[in-house]
């Protein structure tokens, strides 16, 4: 197991796994409309494992740059939401990051699974 993780392929897969987790965190950030606030479930979860400062800091750091860019892009495309409702521009960001996460995940699964594909079958010798 450890040997596999330390092999080049294992390292690539770990990088993919990390990327999927990172993008999934961005989904939570988008859900609140690209603000620095963390959702309650995430606050609770990250406080328990002592990571809250890091996550909140990550959220805050994204807000003035990426958050504003995404907001500007969506508004430029004519997206508007009813301020009285719970809908938000972040819904679109959520779906974007979900799409990115699915793409990364799909590619990672293909990297693992492609080994089973074959252009050649060597028959196992029966004893």
């Amino acid at each position: 197991m450890i040997k596999y993780i330390l092999s080049p392929k294992g390292i690539i897969l770990l990088a993919f796994a990390g990327a999927v987790v990172a993008v999934s965190v961005l989904m939570a950030w988008s859900e609140l409309g690209f603000t620095g606030a963390t959702p309650d479930w995430l606050t609770d979860l990250t406080s328990r494992i002592g990571l809250h400062g890091a996550i909140a800091g990550f959220f805050n750091s994204l807000t003035p740059s990426l958050g504003e860019d995404l907001t500007k892009y969506l508004q430029g495309k004519g997206v508007s939401v009813n301020p009285k409702s719970t809908a938000s521009l972040g819904d679109y960001g959520y779906i974007l990051f979900m799409g990115v996460a699915l793409t990364i995940g799909g590619i990672a699964i293909m990297i693992i699974g492609r080994e089973d594909a074959e252009e050649k079958t060597v028959l196992p010798v029966k004893k």
Partner: peptide, 8 residues
């Protein structure tokens, strides 16, 4: 515009 994730 009003439904959460409706537009999506």
């Amino acid at each position: 515009k009003s439904l959460p994730f409706g537009g999506v």
